[in-house]
Amino acid sequence: MSSLSSVASPAAVLPGSPAGGKRAARRVLPGFHLTLGYTVLYLSLIVLIPISALFFKTFTLTLDQFWVAVTSPRVLASYRLTFGASLIAALVNLVFGMLVAWVLVRYTFPGKKLVDALVDLPFALPTAVAGISLTALLAGNGWLGQYLEPMGIKLAFTPAGVVIALIFVGLPFVVRTVQPVLEDAEKELEEAATSLGATRLQIFTKVILPHIMPALLTGFAMAFARAIGEYGSVIFIAGNMPMISEITPLIIIGKLEQYDYAGATAVAVVMLVLSFILLLVINALQAWQRRNAGAPA
């Protein structure tokens, strides 16, 4: 390593400084300006400039207009549904995602590899397909609906259906964030706890749970963020009744179809700001997770 950087230092960007040894070595590789330049250019063209268009469009509204657009009763009802359903779905995924990850890591059973592969189905299956399929299952004449509806449980075309669809789309997140952390968990800690007289439940709550907590919360936040923005799978099963089962992305579509671009933009800005916040939260959680994993356990 040291011989490498001394050979290469004439070409390096910062030769002199002692701490720059590593830095200099890194710059030995060509293509920094090309790849970084292309990355920033492409990112700006596809993502940043278009998103800034959204904010500029909002500035054409007065504050009053903006406020009216984002707080009308119908829009408020859609926030409540989108948040509430996303929160419930993410909580369900938190519990069952942890369970599935646990079972996949700790136990052996026939078909385990198949189940492991199948967990990613919601990533691979187009949301519209998931939407019509879940609706077909839960509608009054569907495989599940025909048994549930006589019992008074109506899921399709209700807010409960929205929750079901959001559980589906968010399912892989918790499993896939918790799984690797569980795999890496050191069994020695559990053995030590056992030899000190802890019960299995105590070990789970005091040893295992703290270890996987950052990953659990990361998965939860990702499932929540995904659920907030979800559109395709929800609109088929929701029934889309204004004030009852209309999600916020559908409000945006509705406003667009009435050529109310300003109104659509205002609601979109609310959603976009929320996604930024969630993205920052997820980043912070992931940083915590890395520290947690890196710290001597």
Partner: peptide, 13 residues
């Protein structure tokens, strides 16, 4: 993290 609907909207704008 951007909702697909918002993604479509920004190109319409």
């Amino acid at each position: 993290s951007v909702s697909p609907v918002v993604a479509g909207l920004i190109y319409v704008l």
